[in-house]
Design a protein around this nucleic acid. Structure first.
Length: 512
RNA sequence: GCCGCCUUAGCUCAGUUGGUUAGAGCGCUAGAAUGUGGAUCUAGAGGUCCCCUGUUCGAUUCAGGGAGGCGGUACCA
């Protein structure tokens, strides 16, 4: 039997969780990031950039009691056998940068940065293994006012991205009140604490009933998989539910409608438990709430949904020490297949007073947040809330006569000088029809046609492809289509730029 | 990690109750029409039917294992 004579073809494939980005995606993302950047600059933040790779120990990602990095990060060993890892967020590298340059940096240090981060974990809807984050941090700012400012900036950023007030919410919590809760209900085992926190974190996903199950024996999901619970007793469960049940949030009448009142809510929480860490967390939340309200970001006179106190916000468990906050979208998101998808938060952050101390031994208080640009992009795409920047395709100068290439290039140059995208056809010019087909498929606004006839007379043909496209709908017969040459007109060679500038498609773009 | 569904042409998908040559639409290439896009017509290229092992005279089809994709769930800085 004959063996495979064909050479094995290499299979073109992407690593899962990694994606190619289309031109329209890149343009939309750039535009989005420009808007975010404007807000951050306005708030007085300056950019900084760190590399993709860091020493694994600087990221704090060695497994305990092991000389191997955590599996969740992409890691490799350098020639000298030191472990390197791709950054998994932008905060750990910032802490390294600050620690390394602490003498040159003026505190409080307001800084922002955007970049790709990498996580070696299973991708999900809107979750990738390489994705873009946009961070802002204030380093060397110990006060709640810094946290409040971060929350307000996050709200302003959402609105700069044309996410309407009411379509998003910034939810704020303080880790100290969670610690106070554990003290109050008598949970001291670290593992059990984690289970409780995770259960609370699932409130928006599974509702109160789901959380109850997770606090108790456990919960079975739709696919039949079982999650073990925190195994609290009934009294403890009751207390936790009282703590995170949104129905217990207190309301006030603002401008004729009942809205959540953060100050009343905080008083309600004060009545639940009493211990020093719990109270100090609530004090911090209260001063944040007051600042936010005084600055016009709270409920008074506004829809209530801008900045909320919400004890079910947990965030990551690793380095946050006080305030934590999270930006969440409130509208439904469906994927390409029309299935409704759990979207969750598009950004978040908090106070990390201990992160820089790892390097310097000296406590440097810091607070910051991170926007998941890639996730936010897919949500906005979904919502059709992206501005469609219609970067027009280039004008195509057709090649009719190979000996005239220099002349064609000259036309292209003239157009480019005026800021109009233009190119000479670089494919095989043998078939003239192909050139127009190319222009058509690229959605070019116009094609320039000049052969020996035109050169002799000192003219060119300009074909307005937009006009032609419209005309084509009513022409069924090819003879007619060809003889009419819809959208095509001739002009003097010297009028090339002038006539192109008069095309409606070009005018519309230049007026933007 | 665990659970469910899925995997046939570049794309979307049919189909083979186990049989010789595996199909469609779209897309692509060429021609009708060599200086005019769209529509139309004609022809052509393109397949290890996800992989491995087993059962069988014979496996794309059946069985077992694996990989990949999607979704849920867990973990998540």
């Amino acid at each position: 039997m004959a063996k495979n004579k064909k050479p094995q073809k290499v299979k073109a494939r992407l690593i899962r969780g990694f994606n190619d980005r289309s031109s329209s995606d890149i343009r939309a993302t750039d535009e989005m990031m420009g808007k975010i950047q404007n807000v951050f600059e306005l708030y007085g933040f300056d950019p900084i950039e760190t590399p993709f790779l860091e020493y694994t120990d600087a990221l704090g990602k060695f497994l305990p009691d092991s000389d191997r990095p955590n599996e969740g990060v992409f890691s490799l060993q350098d020639e000298d056998e030191q472990w390197l890892s791709l950054r998994y967020d932008l905060t750990a590298p910032l802490a390294r940068h600050v620690a390394q340059n602490i003498n040159e940096i003026t505190m409080p240090y307001r800084t922002y940065r955007a970049g790709w981060v990498f996580r070696n974990e299973k991708p999900g809807p809107g979750r990738f293994r390489q994705f873009m984050q946009f961070d802002a941090d204030i380093v060397g700012a110990p006060n709640v006012s810094a946290d409040a400012e971060m929350c307000m900036m996050m709200a302003d950023t959402m609105e700069a991205l044309r996410i309407k007030r009411g379509d998003y919410v910034i939810r704020v919590n303080n880790r100290k009140i969670l610690d106070g809760l554990f003290e109050a209900i008598g949970v001291f085992d670290e593992g059990q604490k984690l289970s409780v926190l995770r259960a609370i974190d699932k409130l928006d996903k599974f509702g109160l009933d789901g959380v109850k199950l997770l606090l108790g024996d456990g919960r079975k999901d739709e696919s039949g998989d079982f999650t073990k619970g925190a195994e609290l007793n009934e009294l403890q469960i009751d207390n936790v539910i009282k703590f995170c049940n949104p129905d217990n949030f207190q309301t006030s009448n603002y401008e004729g409608s009942l809205q959540k009142d953060p100050l009343k809510t905080i008083n309600y929480f004060r009545s639940l438990f009493e211990n020093s860490i719990y109270t100090s967390g609530l004090d911090e939340l209260e001063s944040l709430a007051k600042l936010v309200i005084d600055s016009g970001y709270g409920p008074k006179g506004y829809f209530s949904g801008r900045i909320h106190i919400d004890p079910s916000v947990v965030r990551g468990l690793e380095y946050y020490t006080g305030m934590v906050y999270e930006a969440e979208l409130l509208f439904d998101v469906t994927n390409d297949k029309g299935q409704k998808v759990q979207f969750g938060s598009v950004g978040g952050g908090g106070r990390y007073d201990g992160l820089i101390k790892r390097f310097t031994g000296q406590a440097v208080p810091a607070t910051g947040f991170s926007i998941g640009v890639s996730r936010l992009m897919s949500a906005l795409k979904n919502l059709d809330r992206l501005e469609k920047t219609q970067m027009p395709a280039p004008i195509i100068v057709c090649v009719m006569d190979k000996s005239r290439v220099a002349d064609y290039q000259k036309m292209v140059m003239e157009l480019r000088k005026k800021g109009i995208r233009a190119e000479m056809y670089q494919g095989n010019p043998k078939n003239f029809g192909k050139q127009l087909q190319y222009a058509d498929r690229r959605n070019s606004p116009a094609a320039i046609i000049a052969g020996s006839d035109e050169f002799e007379q000192g003219i060119i043909q300009i074909k307005d492809l937009v006009v032609g496209k419209e005309a084509s709908q009513n022409i069924k017969d090819n003879e007619q289509w060809k003889s009419e040459r819809p959208g095509q007109f001739e002009c003097k060679r010297s009028e090339l730029v002038k006539k192109i500038l008069e095309l409606p498609a070009i005018k519309a773009w230049l007026n933007k």
